[in-house]
Design a protein around this nucleic acid. Structure first.
Lengths: 236, 236
DNA sequence: GCTCGGTATTTTGTCCCACAAATGAAGGAG
DNA sequence: CTCCTTCATTTGTGGGACAAAATACCGAGC
């Protein structure tokens, strides 16, 4: 009864569910569907691909988990874009994020943030600098590590967004759960939090005075310090 | 999709599937399950929560989409942590392609690739350099623009992957459709393709001789040239 | 003619059942 | 003791049924 072996369309990898996902992807692409458009009903999709409704439902369930569609009864599966929320949900699970992931993401931040000086210096509005200073002060004054981490992240987000590149900003939004959690582990000790505050201040100072070398130096130190509280296993 | 995560109980207002997801989360937390442990079978979970097997399957499907579990027949759903891959998969889904997007992505590439010199110079294996040269030659010799674009992208992928940062490599994999399409439009004219070939060669030369300024100069020029064939609208 | 309310219909949500496929486990033959 | 066969368990897929929700439609009343 299964193995319709439908040729012609996406020869997706393995399972029937994956094939349906691929078919829906193709459908979205070919028909140019965007946010607000509705997918065919589950029964229709099943007929199109030669799959049962259960299989189609599991495929749609994947897309829902991805934040790409929402389904409403009587209407069907509507295309949305809540992918960032989905990412937050993914990392809200109680599983610890591996040290290797932390290191890798921090390495990515180093590749990007340390080199932002060229783009930012001289082009950074005073308002942005002031906002960053405010976040830094709020971080130092925060009650708990989670709040401090939020302000720490906000500081860096302002920095990154000031570069004026949307792709970069979105990448940082994706990485936010990992980055912010790492920041949180680095805020439990008073000493470390004070160190981050001083590093932020030095970074701001370098940005204000146009000191590129100083910026790179302090940013490098700052990102290194963020990894200080990770277990030593799994170098990256 | 709530954030029950820390609260003691599992209120789980929403659908039955959401309740099962919450129950599994609670199970993972309470039993302290980690990577490698297996969840109870679908039938057992259904009995525990009072839900049908289909409902349980959809809940597990969400966790699979999140990269939290993998299921193998006869064994069951084993806990893994492929969340990073899952997140990247989410964002590789559908990217809108407009002139503004091209400009933005190219700007992101500039932020990253121009500054890779510090990381790469002196640490780039000869084999990688040779592979990049081979891709460059293949690009120049390619029959059609699409093939040339594939080799162009391969050249840059080798460069980026040589930095040894997984996050960066995965971000580039996400951007691949956009980047490669842009490369394709820049390969239709013979003159432009020859220019790209020479720029690649100059980049390789600078990498080989450790000429950081030369690398940055040529990479900047190269990325600029890639935008030459875009319509003028929407400056960045 | 227009508005309000009830009915009809479509579509998703959940459950049950059945069987196929995979695969680890147990048991038997050499 | 080892290898092979058989078995049992669990996921994978398909089909059917009914409930719930929400839109669409149609008729009654003003």
């Amino acid at each position: 009864m299964q193995k319709a072996d439908d040729s012609g369309s996406e020869a997706a990898s393995g399972s029937a569910v994956d094939q349906v996902v691929a078919a829906i992807r193709a459908l979205i692409r070919e028909r140019g569907l965007g946010v607000g458009d509705v997918l065919p009903s589950e029964a229709e999709l099943g007929a199109m691909v030669g799959a049962g409704r259960n299989t189609v439902r599991e495929a749609i369930r994947i897309l829902k988990a991805y934040g790409i569609v929402e389904s409403r009864q009587k209407v069907g599966a509507v295309i949305t874009d809540r992918r960032r929320e989905a990412v937050m949900d993914v990392f809200s699970f109680a599983i610890d994020i591996s040290a290797a992931t932390f290191r890798d993401v921090q390495g990515f931040r180093r590749l990007v943030e340390v080199n932002l000086a060229e783009t930012l210096i001289g082009r950074l509005p005073a308002a942005t600098l002031a906002a960053m200073a405010a976040e830094n002060a709020a971080m130092a004054a925060a009650e708990d590590p989670a709040a401090a981490a939020r302000h720490d992240y906000a500081f860096h987000r302002l920095l990154v967004e000031a570069a004026g590149n949307r792709t970069l900003a979105e990448v940082y939004a994706i990485l936010r759960p990992v980055v912010q959690r790492l920041m949180e582990t680095g805020k439990t000790e008073r000493r470390a939090r004070d160190g981050a505050f001083r590093e932020h201040a030095a970074i701001l100072d370098a940005l204000g005075t146009g000191d590129r070398l100083g910026y790179a130096y302090h940013m490098n130190r700052h990102l290194d310090a963020g990894l200080e509280f990770l277990p030593e296993a799994g170098r990256g």
